[in-house]
């Protein structure tokens, strides 16, 4: 069988969603960023909002997200994505506005902007990739780096006496009156991808209600920064990240989920 015989509509099992571009992803093979991009763009396609959505790329591995998403986008200074999104949303209150941020961006340099955008209840969606490390700059400690976890600036592991504790910013913002929907998911198995997709879709649909901010954290791998194979990194994530960053909805329809 040659290629021509294989590439036929009836053989199609999977294809690029419309709003993803043809551009080759710049992410390391095995990295979760690509999957999350797809889920966000599938959501845009399913809701039919391409002409009404504006995205904000942040500074981190996903800085070039605008190359891969076929929608109007801007690129924010490091940590300021939710302030940039606030400016856009206040000017276009009926458009769908989202940020796409890493943990360094959202929970270290941008903590102030994150907390205040959440607290004001800006009607935006935050997609937050928590990989416990600074991927782009070469694997330094992030605010989310686990105790004992090695990074290029914690080569002997993170010690609480020296480097302080990892931060659960998602639980923190769930406490704020301005957040309407807060959820933590992952994309390392098909089942988890489906759950993450549902959360992301809810987070976008919520913008129509104008009841506050929706944040979806994706606990993700950084196989390069963690210096593991993709498979090892997913296993390590399950064993080490999930106990500290448990998956599931944290706040739904403005109410904290009782566990």
């Amino acid at each position: 069988m040659d290629l021509k015989e294989i590439i036929k509509p009836e053989n199609l099992v999977y294809k690029r969603t419309e709003c993803l571009t043809d551009k080759t992803l710049s992410y390391c093979p095995g990295c979760g960023h690509g999957t999350v991009h797809r889920l966000v763009m599938e959501t845009v396609d399913e809701l039919g909002i391409q002409s009404d959505v504006i995205g904000v790329a942040s500074v981190g591995c996903s800085v070039l997200a605008y190359d891969f998403m076929d929608i109007d986008m801007t690129q924010s200074p490091h940590g300021r994505a939710t302030a940039v999104a606030t400016g856009i949303k206040r000017c276009w209150p009926d458009k769908f506005v989202f940020t796409y941020q890493g943990d360094g961006d959202l929970a270290a340099i941008g903590t102030g902007e994150t907390i205040h955008a959440c607290n004001r209840g800006e009607n935006i969606t935050i997609i937050f990739i928590n990989n416990g490390i600074y991927g782009m700059t070469g694997g330094q400690m992030a605010p989310t780096t686990l105790l004992g976890m090695k990074s290029s600036t914690t080569p002997y592991g993170r010690e609480v006496e020296l480097m302080g504790n990892p931060i659960k910013i998602t639980e923190l913002v769930a406490q704020l009156a301005g957040t309407y929907f807060v959820s933590r998911q992952s994309v390392h198995t098909p089942g988890n991808v489906r759950k993450a997709k549902k959360a992301i879709k809810t987070a976008f649909e919520n913008q129509k209600l104008k009841k506050g901010l929706s944040l979806v954290e994706i606990v993700s791998n950084c196989n390069s920064g963690w210096k593991m194979t993709p498979v090892e990194s997913n296993k390590w994530m399950e064993e080490n990240m999930f106990p500290f960053y448990p998956l599931g909805d944290i706040k739904v329809e403005g109410q904290l989920v009782q566990k």
Binding site: T74, P77, G87, I88, R90, G112
Partner: peptide, 15 residues
């Protein structure tokens, strides 16, 4: 903060 303010300007200006 002024940092947030100028970045809100950046977002709004991009519209």
């Amino acid at each position: 903060s002024e940092i947030a303010a100028i970045n809100m300007v950046y977002g709004a200006a991009s519209t």
